[in-house]
């Protein structure tokens, strides 16, 4: 469980607070999505979970952040690393090895995972992300999307209870993005992992996450189930975040009096809606 209590943070070198007045709880086994404009504080929020704030970035830290009951100010990052695995936004600079296999081994070796268990997990993440053929490649020779998969594999291999990902699909094509979210859903549902993912693609978030956080200027301005965004369209418009087009379509059809059901959130629901409207119109 993760608990924020009236938490605020200001980077040492800056005037404004990067995060302000955050109070919330994330239960074990939650699947949380975070969206917001550039500079809203999404990455900063993820840093607090792995203890990078306050241990790596200096600044003013107010309130408290507790992960599994441990105050992140009091315990070292390597202690937190036993529960929290974080895939960072900047793919290149988080790499610590020159070869794909070494990158995936790194965390497991550090934690002293037993020898045969390492081999098993290595195979499992290589297959899970479909990167077995990259195993012996130099990381510098990979494409952005391939590197992103390696970075995710390296964290999943550590088998953390809480998986934090900062824009994990930024370099990926739509098919691979869906693959990543399918993996996250499986880890969440089958293995009870807590998943916290920063993502710009609203459609993916609506489809996969249970809880959506919208951030703006260091604050959480919306916190609720993704279905609730239907009522929040003005807020999203204000922030310049696109709502899924199917939501817009549903609202327009409702406003025009052609549709009376629930506003659709994904393509399947949208298809049903359109069929209904067409049937009503006698087409």
């Amino acid at each position: 469980m993760i608990q924020f209590e009236d938490f605020s943070f200001r980077y040492k070198s800056s005037e404004a607070f990067a995060l302000q007045g955050i109070s919330m709880t994330i239960e074990n086994g939650a699947f949380v999505g975070i969206i917001g404009n550039s500079g809203a504080g999404k990455s900063t929020l993820t840093y607090t979970l792995s203890g990078i704030i306050p241990h790596h970035f200096d600044g003013d830290f107010y309130g408290s952040v507790k992960v599994n009951g441990l105050d992140t100010v009091e315990v070292k990052p390597e202690k937190l690393a036993q529960f929290v695995g974080e895939v960072f936004q900047d793919i290149d600079s988080q790499m610590v090895s020159s070869i794909v296999e070494d990158e995936i081994l790194f965390g497991m070796e550090n934690f002293g995972v037993p020898h045969d268990e390492i081999g098993r997990r290595l195979d499992s993440v290589l297959d899970m992300l479909g990167i077995r053929d990259l195993k012996d490649r130099q990381i510098s020779s990979l494409s952005g999307g391939q590197k992103q998969k390696v970075a995710i594999a390296a964290i999943l291999a550590m088998d953390p209870e809480i998986i934090v990902l900062d824009e994990p699909t930024g370099e990926l094509d739509p098919a691979s993005s869906i693959m990543i979210f399918d993996i996250l859903r499986r880890l969440n549902r089958e293995f009870g992992k807590t998943v916290i993912v920063v993502e710009q693609k609203i459609m993916l978030l609506c489809e996969y996450v249970d809880r959506l956080l919208v951030m703006d200027a260091g604050k959480i301005v919306f916190d609720g189930r993704s279905e609730e965004i239907v009522q929040q369209v003005p807020l999203f418009k204000n922030l310049g975040i696109n709502v899924p087009r199917v939501v817009e379509l549903g609202q327009q059809l409702t406003a025009a009096g052609l549709y009376h059901g629930a506003i659709p959130l994904d393509l399947d629901q949208a298809e049903k809606m359109v069929k209904e409207v067409l049937a009503d119109a006698g087409v």
Binding site: I52, H55, H56, E78, V84, E86, F88, F111
Partner: peptide, 9 residues
């Protein structure tokens, strides 16, 4: 990179 190494134990 150092940060990434640190949080990976």
């Amino acid at each position: 990179g150092a940060m990434s190494a640190e949080v990976r134990g």
